[in-house]
Amino acid sequence: MAKQKEGVDKRTARKMIRSTEGCAKSITLERNNKSDDVQLHDLPNDILGSILSRLTFRESSQMGLVSHTWRRLWRSCCRKLVFTSATMFQPGNRSIKHTRTNFAMRVNSFLRQLRTHPTLNKFVIKFGLRRKHTRHVNRWIRFCSVSRARHITINFTPGVKDFFMGPANSKYIFPLNVFSGPEGSSTHVRTLHLGYVCLDTTSSDFMIFANLKKLTLHKISFLGDLQCLMLPECNSLECLSISFCSLPGLSTCQPLQRLRCVRLHYCYLKKIELEAPNLTSFDLTNQPIPFVLGGSLNVMEANIKLLAKDSPYGDNLDYIYTELPAALSHVHKLSITSGLFGLFFISYIF
């Protein structure tokens, strides 16, 4: 009996040893597997840069706070700068007031971190700034120009009521000459969106945007005695949108071969003379005025909304049935909205 017990004890001891050896082996294997795992910061910089480029501006900037390595990587891979209330102020944090002064201080602090000027794909400033903030905004515009940003948005309309155009003396004067300076460049600009700023009409600096494809002007004031806004010689311009800008007239200094889309809303124009042979879409909200779309034989759709205030055509019926069909004789689809006796009259011509 004693021998049998000794045999059993030996067998159980061997099993325990084997089990412990197996556990030890499994533990070492797990540790080796853990040590072989690839960490995120071990990836090549080009892959990490591609990851950062897919994040939002706020997310990518937060990654720059993780470590010095990530900060250097973020500085070298930063391709878009978006300065808005949502990106400069933490949502839900009421300890910091969303004032214009705090906004300017945060943007200045942010740009100081970018010691070099990266090539930007997008540069956006959207906040209710005014002319008294010119010192700050000029610095940002110069940074944008030197960085050769492709898509630029300078929109100071936040806080402004819908139909309020604002006084010109309070608006920031956008320095077009910055993009034609020795350090600036305008050939890289593809889209330009300006909102609630002033433009100097005595300058011809608009012509420097030779490769501009989309131009948007919203609540713009023009300095000087403006008789007619001459569109720039942008052979690449494809889309033009002007809204809530007091313009006596709009014309082109030469045919714009690539212009496809024109939107003119609440500009109170007196005349329109456009040379756009390949125009396909025309959208106008204005008082009844004579206009000429020279050579535009491919217009697929035209939307005309007539404002009844101070109309020289009375109830607009003469204008609707005589002037518009003559000016838009080649349009495939014409939509007209006009205020008649407090009602809306809509006509479609195919």
Rank of each mutant, 00 (worst) to 15 (best):
D46H: 11
D46W: 02
I47V: 15
I47C: 12
I47S: 08
I47Y: 04
L48R: 12
L48H: 08
I51K: 04
S53T: 11
R54P: 08
L55M: 15
T56V: 02
T56E: 15
F57I: 12
F57H: 10
F57M: 12
R58G: 05
R58P: 11
R58E: 14
R58H: 12
R58A: 12
E59K: 09
E59L: 10
E59S: 14
S60I: 06
S60R: 14
S61P: 00
S61D: 11
S61I: 15
Q62G: 01
Q62T: 07
L65R: 08
S67K: 06
S67T: 09
S67W: 03
R71Q: 11
R71H: 09
R71K: 11
R71S: 09
R72Y: 04
R79G: 01
K80Q: 14
V82T: 12
F83D: 03
T84S: 11
T84N: 06
A86W: 10
A86I: 02
T87I: 08
T87H: 06
Q90G: 00
P91S: 13
G92S: 07
G92Q: 06
N93Q: 05
R94V: 03
S95L: 01
S95N: 03
I96N: 05
K97E: 13
K97F: 10
R100P: 07
T101Q: 13
T101N: 13
T101R: 13
T101K: 14
T101G: 13
N102S: 06
F103Y: 09
M105F: 01
R106N: 03
R106L: 10
V107G: 07
V107M: 05
N108V: 00
S109Q: 10
S109M: 07
R112F: 05
R112W: 01
Q113D: 05
Q113L: 08
L114F: 09
L114C: 02
L114R: 07
R115H: 08
T116D: 10
H117V: 02
H117D: 03
H117Q: 02
P118W: 03
T119K: 13
L120D: 06
L120H: 04
N121D: 15
N121Q: 15
F123D: 12
K126S: 04
F127I: 04
G128L: 06
G128E: 05
R130W: 12
R130D: 11
R130C: 09
R131A: 15
K132N: 15
K132L: 14
